[in-house]
């Protein structure tokens, strides 16, 4: 891995000035990205992005389609490793450890940084087995009662327990779209990750299901660091405390959600959130 910047360099980007004060207020961020570039073959999809993710806040990534939100998100738990042409440079740290360092274990990393995808992708297994999947492979439960407990707790946290407790043996794919997405969130929670990345988790859902997920995200805040990619300004405004605006692979602006939406520093941000392009 090529490091373009040393780990502890101060944030150079002027628009991120306000964050430095946050650092003082909240100690170290959970994840810290500095000078991250992502390439697909020769094509640069992400160019020099610096971002901090805190457990206390939900961070939203917004930006027009194709600007690299998903690409960057996938860099945060090395899901880009599964794409042969993808290459990441710069540093991304989790609790101060470089996740692209050779000592970092991908399996462990992904257990610590979970991910929820745009389209709900429950495994073709029972609801129970979907949730139990992570704990089982990671050996987090010593006994069946242990596992039962994890499953119930995860489903409860995901707000799905009441709806499915009588049919845990049914296939996960038999649930409605919104339930499936909450199932996927429950599945991610089940291994007790430190950060959860969500890539447009509501784009395949109706407003009621969306509202439920948003509620859920709010409840999970503080326990897990949450990053959510969304195309909906309203959603970003509703669920996040920090917002990052991407454009053509660049991080244009990153700051308090309220600032970004009411008083953006950049003209491009202003144009995007008022719907002038995107």
């Amino acid at each position: 891995m090529v490091m373009s910047e040393t780990t502890d360099s101060p944030i150079a980007n002027p628009v991120n000035k306000s964050l430095e004060n946050e650092n003082i207020a909240h100690g170290e961020p959970k994840m810290r990205a500095r000078g991250v570039d992502v390439y697909y073959g020769d094509k640069k999809a992400i160019d020099g992005v610096d971002i901090d993710v805190y457990t206390e806040y939900v961070t939203a990534f917004i930006g027009p389609s194709g600007c690299g939100k998903s690409t960057f998100l996938r860099a945060l738990n090395r899901m880009n490793d599964t794409i042969p042409s993808a290459r990441v440079t710069g540093t991304i740290e989790l609790d101060g450890e470089d996740i692209y360092a050779s000592g970092m274990d991908v399996v462990q990393l992904r257990a610590r940084v979970g991910m929820v995808f745009q389209k709900p992708n429950p495994f073709p297994k029972s609801i129970y087995d979907n949730i139990a999947y992570g704990p089982k492979i990671h050996g987090l439960a010593e006994s069946k009662p242990d596992l039962d407990e994890i499953v119930e707790k995860s489903l409860r946290r995901a707000g799905l327990w009441e709806e499915v407790k009588d049919r845990l043996a049914d296939s996960g794919t038999a649930l409605s779209g919104g339930q499936q997405q909450r199932l996927c969130i429950a599945r991610a929670i089940a291994v007790d990750p430190e950060v959860i990345l969500m890539d447009e988790p509501c784009s395949a859902l109706d407003p009621i299901a969306t509202a439920k997920i948003e509620e859920l995200i709010d409840e999970l805040r503080g326990r897990y660091g949450i990053v959510i990619v969304t195309h909906s300004m309203q959603q970003a405004a509703r669920v996040s405390q920090r917002t990052a605006f991407f454009h053509l692979g660049h991080l244009v602006e990153y700051g308090h959600t309220s600032d970004i939406f009411t008083n953006p520093a950049e003209q491009r941000t202003q144009d995007y959130i008022t719907g002038r392009y995107g």
Partner: peptide, 19 residues
């Protein structure tokens, strides 16, 4: 586990080797 997360225990890492 609440403090360090269940995925950063020694047991997890031992298991990881086997995996």
């Amino acid at each position: 586990a609440e403090n360090v997360g269940p995925t950063r225990t020694a047991a997890f890492e031992a298991r990881l080797k086997k995996r």
